[in-house]
Amino acid sequence: MEYLHAEYQRTEDLAAAIRLLQADGVSRRALELYSRRPVEAVTQLLPRRSRMSLGAVLSAIAVGTGATVLMYWIQLDYPLVTGGMPIVSGWATAVVTFEATMAGAVFGTLLMLLKESGLVLSRRRAPVPDLPDEGAVLQVECETGAPSIRALLKNTGASRIEVVDSAA
């Protein structure tokens, strides 16, 4: 296995390269684009599956429910009457339930971001190319010495192609 790093300056070239590579049978997982700014055109070509919204919602429900159950348990366990209010009441604790739910959503989003972006918890072994000032670097994971892919990258207008061994 080796990694090809191809630098592109123009969005169309990059898009064309990704399209052709995928038509050639290169899987999405083998492609990775590195840049200093997000390249929006590529987002549609290389959509990454995400469960972030689901994670946020589940975490929100879990934390919100947890906080509410805890509050009810505490209030029943040590009942004190204030202002003639009922010992447990949804009204009295609604705000705390809401805030806990929202804190859960924030927490869930953060965890899912770390998981999906590979920040902190990264397990990806692929080498990281140096980012050019302008443009972007397309990384292709392929069989060692794949001439067709190299040609394809060159033909679509890659300004620089580098080969990086997976061992490196």
Binding site: P79, L80, V81, G84, M85, P86, I87, S89
Partner: peptide, 10 residues
């Protein structure tokens, strides 16, 4: 428990 009083609790 619409109208809890302390004597009910204690």
């Amino acid at each position: 428990m619409a109208d809890t009083t302390a004597s009910q609790v204690e």
